[in-house]
Amino acid sequence: MGLIASGVTVKLGRRTVLRDVSAAFEPGRVTVVLGANGAGKSTLLRAAAALVPIQAGAVTIDGGDVARLPPRERAGTIGYLPQDAVVHWNMQVRDLVALGRLPHGDAGADAIEQALAATRTLDLADRSARNLSGGERARVLLARVLAGEPRWLLADEPLASLDPQHQLETLELLRNAAMAGMGVVIVLHDLTLAAAIADDVLLLKDGQVLAQGPAEAVMTPDHLAAAYGVRVDMVVRSDGRRIILPLGPV
């Protein structure tokens, strides 16, 4: 059960971006996907949302092949937040968030209000997209995904361009979503933030799985050195939280 990738191989052009990737994600948990640039993190998320064709293997949700689900049913199940936060037209924030209801074909006023409240963007609701800062836009786009009330949230770097306060608020929001039963899969670059939020970690290197499992077991200095090619120092604070500091090349 859950969201399962089995033997997934994805080629983009001639390049094999994911090679025989098998991974399991569980609902109610936050899984952080880690890896160096080009390791295949974003492609794995896109494959899970059936946005790229898979050459071999399959992604299933509760046993059903994601690629074969009717598009609207899939859209109602999986909320996907792309890495590049584009908004092509200068729409009002509330209209933008309402796009999240498209798969359901209803107004979903309550869901929209809740999503705005959860991302602390209620006060932005009547502003236009052009007048948002990068961080405000990122939160509004996350609200757009949440407004669709998906069972799975796949978010590609949802903390990028957020200030520390909003990073923490967004992490708390993702944590609460997982506690409410949502399956949360996010790509992150900041190792300390990853350690703070992750229940599970999937570590990718060159399109293959280097390690996966509970965060403490996967985020070891050895694994991280192998994945990123840098030595890291890990400081465990008295409250058990870990600070991970990249030091230099291996």
């Binding site: 946005l51 598009p71 899939r74 937040l81 498209l102 798969p103 757009r144 669709g148």
Partner: peptide
């Protein structure tokens, strides 16, 4: 509907169920 979804780019539009 499809044009509205495309405001967020083609990946986001497809993830919203737009063919």
């Amino acid at each position: 509907r499809g044009l509205d979804a495309l405001t967020l780019g083609s990946d986001a539009a497809r993830s919203l169920g737009i063919d």
